[in-house]
C-alpha cells in the first residue's frame, strides 16, 4: 500500500491525502485503512450504503473525531486535528448531515458561530463587530449565489433549503481550501436541490476542491469528477466518472463488484 502511494508525496498535486485511516468505536470497526487522495480543484463524490463509513471518514478529516490510526496530509502537511476548529483553521470547511446551525440565531451569527469577529477583545465579554459580520455575510451570500430574504431572520423561521444554503454559505465566508458536504440535499425539494447544486458548480468554476457525500446517482454524475465507493468501513472502488455508469457504481456499493486494486480489502 505504502509503495503505491509513494508518488503522492509530490506536495503540490494533492490538497488532501489520507493514509490507512482507521477508526474503531470500541469493538466496532467503523473505518479500516482508508487511503484517499484529492487533487486541487477536483470534485469527488463519496458513495456507499448506510453504515459504510462515509460519515465516519468525514468526521476524522474534519476533526470532529480523532482516528484510531492513520495519517491525514492536508495541503502538504501532516495534521492531527484535535477539534473541528483546528481543521477549520487549516482550511477544511464542512457542511454536516445534521445541520450545525443554531435555530434561534440570525444568519450572520450562524455564519460566524464559534469564530465571531471582535471589535474589542475583553475575553469572554468581547464586544462583537456586528456590522463587519453582516457585511461579510452579504459578501459570502453573493459569492455562493445564495438568496436569503432577510438576514436578521432566525434560522427557525427558514425553509429547509434556506437553512442548507446558510450552512453552505458558511463555507464561503472564510478562505477555505477544501469543502466537504455530507448529503447536502437529502431533505430538500426539487427547486432547493437545484439551488444547492448550482452552488456546487460555482465552487467548481472557482477551482475549489470538494468532497460530496450523496446517495443521489444523478446528482453525483452531474457534479463530480471521480467517485469513491465505501463498503463496510473500507474503500472498495475509485472510479473516474468517464469510465463508469450508475449500474457499475451500484454493483460496487452492494458488493457485487470490488475494484481490482482493492481486492482482499472487503
Amino acid at each position: 500500500m505504502a509503495a503505491k502511494q509513494a508518488g503522492a508525496r509530490i506536495v503540490s498535486d494533492f490538497i488532501l491525502e489520507t493514509r490507512g485511516l482507521t477508526k474503531h468505536y470500541g469493538g466496532v470497526h467503523a473505518l479500516t485503512d482508508a487511503s484517499f487522495t484529492l487533487k486541487r480543484g477536483e470534485h469527488v463524490a463519496i458513495m456507499g450504503d448506510n453504515g459504510a463509513g462515509k460519515s465516519t471518514f468525514v468526521r476524522q478529516i474534519t476533526g470532529v473525531e480523532q482516528p484510531t490510526r492513520g495519517e491525514i496530509i492536508f495541503d502538504g502537511n501532516a495534521h492531527l486535528f484535535n477539534s473541528p476548529i483546528a481543521a477549520r483553521e487549516a482550511g477544511i470547511e464542512a457542511v454536516f448531515q445534521t445541520l450545525a446551525l443554531a435555530d434561534d440565531l440570525d444568519v450572520p451569527s450562524n455564519l460566524f458561530l464559534g469564530r465571531e469577529k471582535i471589535r474589542w477583545n475583553l475575553g469572554p465579554f468581547s464586544i462583537l463587530d456586528r456590522r463587519a459580520m453582516r457585511e461579510a455575510t452579504m459578501a459570502a451570500l453573493v459569492k455562493t449565489g445564495v438568496k436569503i430574504p432577510n438576514l436578521s431572520n432566525t434560522i427557525r423561521n427558514m425553509s429547509g433549503g434556506q437553512r442548507q444554503c446558510v450552512a453552505i454559505a458558511r463555507t464561503a465566508a472564510f478562505k477555505s481550501k477544501l469543502v466537504i458536504m455530507d448529503e447536502p440535499t437529502a431533505a430538500l425539494g426539487v427547486q432547493e436541490t437545484a439551488q444547492v447544486e448550482n452552488i456546487i458548480r460555482t465552487l467548481k468554476e472557482a477551482g475549489e476542491p470538494l468532497i460530496l457525500i450523496s446517495h443521489n446517482m444523478r446528482q453525483v454524475f452531474d457534479l463530480v469528477d471521480r467517485i469513491v465507493v465505501f463498503r463496510r468501513g473500507r474503500i472498495v472502488a475509485n472510479l473516474a466518472k468517464e469510465d463508469t455508469d450508475g449500474q457499475d457504481v451500484v454493483s460496487y456499493i452492494t458488493g457485487a463488484k470490488t475494484g481490482a486494486e482493492f481486492e482482499g480489502a472487503a
Binding site: F96, A100, D104, L113, P124, F125, S126
Partner: peptide, 22 residues
C-alpha cells in the same frame, strides 16, 4: 453585544452545533 451573550443563545438553541463550531 458580546461574545458571552451570543454563546449563551447559541448553546441554548443547539448545543451540538455550538460544540461542532468549536
Amino acid at each position: 453585544y458580546t461574545l458571552y451573550g451570543k454563546r449563551c443563545y447559541a448553546i441554548g438553541s443547539n448545543e451540538a452545533a455550538a460544540r461542532m463550531s468549536g
